[in-house]
């Protein structure tokens, strides 16, 4: 499906990948997708559809979850990346914001953010400048910077997780269910910041979501996963018009 779209200079290209957990459980089979430079792409689907697994395949975190890519290929900036160590992928510009936020609970908000900067080995000043940039995007985090991240609210933790990821200076952010467990107002705030980051700094996003209306409001293009395969894809506008999607998912998630 992605092949028929002529994205010549795709930032990320996933071709027909298959991912197996524990050598036996087939979680993703035959997913292909592309993220163009500067795009916000939505990866939609119900529980267990394979969204998180697809993102982990891209970020190289599959192996840490006892899974492997058993077929297909992934190219980031034109380089095959399925065999690359996660730390190297981060250096190359992919960062994964995990489902459920995964802040470091005993580290302060500021230490959480700093930790994201280490991979680039910045000098003291440049690390500080990086922090200020994140605080400009998320002013709320500045107020909480001395608080242990585990004691901040869910919305703040999501901001910490995104801010920490941005500290790696990524060109592509894999964002896994940012709306999970958050009030609609906070979700809207977070997606608004994602859109701004995309527009002003050119950061590309691949966002896995169950909350289809919010995701498609901010994404340019979307893929719909069902039991490990892409069943539908199109521009946000096309998907919003699509009756099958309306029936199958919007009904369920609303």
């Amino acid at each position: 499906m992605a092949g028929s779209r002529s994205i010549v200079e795709a930032l990320l290209r996933v071709d027909d990948i298959e991912v197996v957990y524990d050598g036996a459980i087939l979680a993703v089979s035959g997913v292909s997708l592309a993220v163009p430079q500067g795009g916000i792409i939505a990866l939609l689907g119900a529980n267990g559809a394979g969204k998180s697994t697809t993102l982990k395949a891209i970020s190289g975190l599959v192996r840490a979850s006892r899974a492997e890519i058993s077929r297909g290929s992934i190219h980031f900036k034109g380089l095959a990346s399925t065999q690359t160590q996660p730390s190297l992928l981060v250096q190359q510009g992919i960062v994964h914001v995990l489902e459920g936020r995964h802040v470091f609970p005993h580290l302060t908000v500021e230490e959480n953010l700093q930790s994201g900067g280490f991979v680039r080995r910045p000098g003291r000043q440049s690390l500080q400048a990086g922090l200020e940039r994140i605080y400009a995007w998320f002013p709320r985090l500045k107020e909480k910077r001395k608080v242990q991240a585990g004691y901040t609210s869910g919305g703040e933790q999501q901001m910490v997780a995104i801010g920490r990821a941005l500290m790696t200076r990524p060109s592509l952010v894999l964002l896994d269910e940012p709306s999970m467990g958050l009030a609609p107002l906070i979700v809207e705030e977070i997606f608004e910041i994602v859109s701004q980051l995309n527009a002003k700094e050119g950061v590309s996003f691949l966002v896995a979501e169950q909350n289809i209306p919010v995701a498609l409001k901010h994404a340019h293009y979307g893929y719909v996963l069902e039991t490990g395969r892409v069943v539908l894809s199109g521009t946000a506008h096309e998907l919003l018009q699509n009756n099958a999607l309306q029936d199958a998912y919007l009904g369920k998630t609303q």
Binding site: S65, S87, S115, M167, T168
Partner: peptide, 8 residues
């Protein structure tokens, strides 16, 4: 896992 995700 989070540490891995930011390149540690």
């Amino acid at each position: 896992l989070a540490a891995l995700s930011i390149g540690i």
